[in-house]
Design a protein around this nucleic acid. Sequence first.
DNA 1: AGCTAAATTTGAATGCAGTCAAATTCTACG
DNA 2: CGTAGAATTTGACTGCATTCAAATTTAGCT
Lengths: 254, 254
Amino acid sequence: MTRRHEQVDVDRVGVNDAVLHYLDVIYRLTQDGQPANTTEIAAKLGVTPSGASVMLRRLAERKLVELTPYKGALLTPQGRQIALRTIRRHRLLEMFLHKVMGFAWDEVDEHAHALETVINEQFEDRMDEMLGHPTRCPHGHLIPAKDGTLPPANDVPLLEQPIGTTGIIRCIDTDNNAWLRYFGEQGLVPGVQVSLREVAPYGGPVSLETPHGLVILGRNLAELILIEVMPPEAAAQQTTPQHIPSGQPFSDHR
Amino acid sequence: MTRRHEQVDVDRVGVNDAVLHYLDVIYRLTQDGQPANTTEIAAKLGVTPSGASVMLRRLAERKLVELTPYKGALLTPQGRQIALRTIRRHRLLEMFLHKVMGFAWDEVDEHAHALETVINEQFEDRMDEMLGHPTRCPHGHLIPAKDGTLPPANDVPLLEQPIGTTGIIRCIDTDNNAWLRYFGEQGLVPGVQVSLREVAPYGGPVSLETPHGLVILGRNLAELILIEVMPPEAAAQQTTPQHIPSGQPFSDHR
DNA sequence: AGCTAAATTTGAATGCAGTCAAATTCTACG
DNA sequence: CGTAGAATTTGACTGCATTCAAATTTAGCT
């Protein structure tokens, strides 16, 4: 009966599936620093705004969110801690589903979502161990450490770089599975080297050079690519990708 | 939106976590053909008998159990189908947790229980495939096939055999984790060859010969061992086990 | 500043799984 | 065969997440 010293006493009554999903969604919506508004939260969770409103009040009573009525919700440090734990589990699960079980990267989110609130610490740790303590999910999002800190990263949006920039794709920042599948088909996955060739004006398409050839992407998709910029010298010589994760990491199934 | 042709339309509204756990428990309690009584069901689920009583009425309304008030509950064919699906998922999960993730056989039930109502068909199929379509869980219980049939088996209780009988352990029929751990320590796991040496009278201890030597077990534990009897000729020569699953299938962890 | 439209909250209600206490039914035994 | 004690069900209630409809607040525009 000794109390384990986790950061937050998550086992306290009242932190259940629903609460975890709310905190998860609020975390994602507040990453820009702005409070998450009720309608957005409701939409992400597939409930009505009135339902979300009621639930937000409950979360505020439990000191998991800081709620300014009619304005929006931010996470308290406690709420953030719990959210980060769920997100850690979600992303570890995605990695596990992809690397160990061979699910495609556009399939893992659905499964991980169902499992993230159900697995326990032992399961979490075992996945982490099996995967060699990964720092990113298959899409490239950072996996929070157990203490709630995020590993360092210097990802920048590809489209915010000057023409001619070369870098390694670090993240495809979307949860749209159809788009993910398309990115995969184009060879645009984390670890692959890309160079920004051309950006057509007035929201027009974007030309990228990849090891597999030239790729033309709509602006909306290209915006989702985050890279780590390579210094020009390094960019000049190296042309092979080092990693090639993809929708199909193994060979024998699906 | 085409409707998949599963046996039972489980996706119909009203089959949720709680229902699945009830059906699972009722299935186990009615395997002897006798109706499961309310108090037993309640105890297995950790709820009060009154709560279970109410839920049983609901399950009867949904035609998942056949309820005779004050007598007990049996599963309808529909209910059995759904229960078997959950049990299949539970046992596949146990196998997965043990073989793929390296959990000890006394740890897998807890995790599998949490996950069994959450995973979907795709996940189930993927595990099945990865494991090579196993027919038994780590403890030796049969894994129902997708169509709800049980694979053939000729397991018999070791203690119902005459002294001198030799066989292969097929199942350790308990969900008591402490006992499972002890069985594992004694080398009494599915696949291992045992011979029944001696049964002390008046409920006394039982002596077994295993590849690792002589084991003395209490009657209550020995009763849980199911074997497949070997013909005497075969029993005479072969002394090495062929399988050796155990709490620790891998070498590099835990 | 006023007004309208959108966002948000409130209030009343629902469905579900559970509790407790009281009433009912069953069963086994003298 | 009657009755005590156990098992079971019923009834009234709770907590939670949800819904819908109505009320309220906010924000944008002229």
